[in-house]
């Protein structure tokens, strides 16, 4: 291990021997992983495998029972670090009585965006997720996919160094999904570290590297092609089955 000083200037995410228990139920078992800067790292696993719990530990919303989590070299949870993280929850955490603009303004203020900068960023992110024409509409009138896109827009507001997206593209149509993925790649090339969870295999293919999670354990880590090659599988689904011990 490097000392504290060197790790502080290291971008990216480090998870070291992390366990998470809720009461007697063990949700994460000895997870160790690393996400490098400029990577789009995907966590692949079925629902209930512990993806969301792991993501919350990294986003600083919960503390591991054992082990350590570092974001850009800072031990999590850490309040100041939260300003550098853009988080998109699995369930759309929006205020349905308010309009999209009011939701955006609220979350923008929480991360310290004000005045002209706030206004400009709100316009930019809403263009990006193709919702610019729906700014004044109350969230109650939004469809499921529109809410997902707005959640993503909120996560992007403050240009965070680190994007943590829990199931970002559920309910979004293929055309828009492609444009969101293009944008994620752009962000990653300009230096943003992206961690996302998914249970959709074709989406997992688009990640730089993948971590496969099953029953709270990391069963494999690697680039999608690597994972397929080393198991001799045609698809990621097959590879997942091999690593999960279901298929030889």
């Amino acid at each position: 291990m490097y000392g504290e000083q060197t790790s502080q200037i290291q971008p990216g995410i480090k998870v070291i021997h992390v366990d998470k228990r809720f009461g007697k139920v063990s949700v994460l078992k000895d997870i160790t992983m690393e996400v490098k800067a400029n990577e789009v790292f995907g966590l692949l696993g079925p629902s209930g495998s512990g993806k969301t719990t792991l993501v919350k530990l990294i986003a600083g919303m919960a503390e591991p029972s054992n082990g350590e989590v570092y974001v850009s070299g800072v031990r999590m949870p850490n309040l100041n670090m939260l300003n550098n993280i853009g988080y998109m929850a699995q369930s759309d955490a929006l205020y349905s009585e308010l309009t999209a603009l009011e939701n955006l303004a609220f979350f923008a203020a929480l991360v310290g965006l004000n005045g002209a900068v706030r206004k400009q960023r709100i316009e930019e992110v809403m263009q990006l997720v193709n919702l610019a024409n729906f700014l004044k509409r109350p969230i109650a009138t939004y469809s499921g996919g529109m809410k997902r896109r707005l959640s993503l827009a909120i996560a992007l507001l403050h240009r965070p160094q680190m994007l943590i997206l829990d199931e970002p593209t559920v309910g979004i149509d293929p055309v828009l999904r492609k444009s969101i993925w293009d944008e994620l790649r752009n962000l990653s090339q300009s230096g943003t570290t992206i961690l996302l969870t998914t249970h959709v295999m074709d989406e997992a293919e688009k990640c730089t590297r993948l971590g496969m999670i099953r029953d709270g354990q990391m069963i494999a880590v690697g680039a999608p092609d690597e994972l397929k090659q080393s198991t001799g599988s045609q698809t990621l689904e097959d590879a997942y089955l091999v690593y999960g011990g279901v298929r030889k």
Binding site: A59, L79, L82, N83, I85, Y87, A89, S91, A93, F107
Partner: peptide, 10 residues
């Protein structure tokens, strides 16, 4: 879930 979401802000 907005409370949890707020806990991901400072």
């Amino acid at each position: 879930g907005t409370l949890e979401r707020l806990m991901a802000t400072p």
